[in-house]
């Protein structure tokens, strides 16, 4: 997940469990997608309990980032190409 450290992001939520983070996305964003753990986003494989929920707002993706010692953070980063890929992935 070190690729995530190399993008510009904003922390949306920290200190919540993975499940609470998923619920936060479902309740705060009108567009969200469910993917499997291991889905590649910004060059990193997502960690989480299936299904992993990703939010979309404008050109931003809101996604969980889990660190072994510090738990799950919800991050927001600009990613129009990732959003297009997510929408395409959903159609499959």
């Amino acid at each position: 997940m070190s690729c995530i450290e190399q993008i510009e992001y904003e922390i949306v939520l920290q200190g919540a469990s993975f499940r609470e983070s998923a619920e936060f996305i479902r309740s705060h964003f009108s567009e969200w997608h469910e993917v499997e753990p291991g889905y590649e986003l910004f060059g990193a494989h997502l960690i989480g309990v299936p299904p992993v929920v990703l939010g979309v707002e404008g050109e931003d993706v809101i996604f969980p980032y889990t660190k072994p010692c510090r738990g799950t953070f919800l991050l927001r980063a600009r990613g129009p190409e990732e959003i297009a890929r997510l929408r395409e992935w959903r159609k499959k």
Binding site: S17, F18, E36, P37, G38, H45, L46, I47, G48, V49, P50, T66, K67, P68, C69, R70, G71, T72
Partner: peptide, 15 residues
Amino acid sequence: HNDAGVSYAGTISAI
């Protein structure tokens, strides 16, 4: 031993 550990196990279960 924490929520992150559950997330890693969930990942292994999927991949």
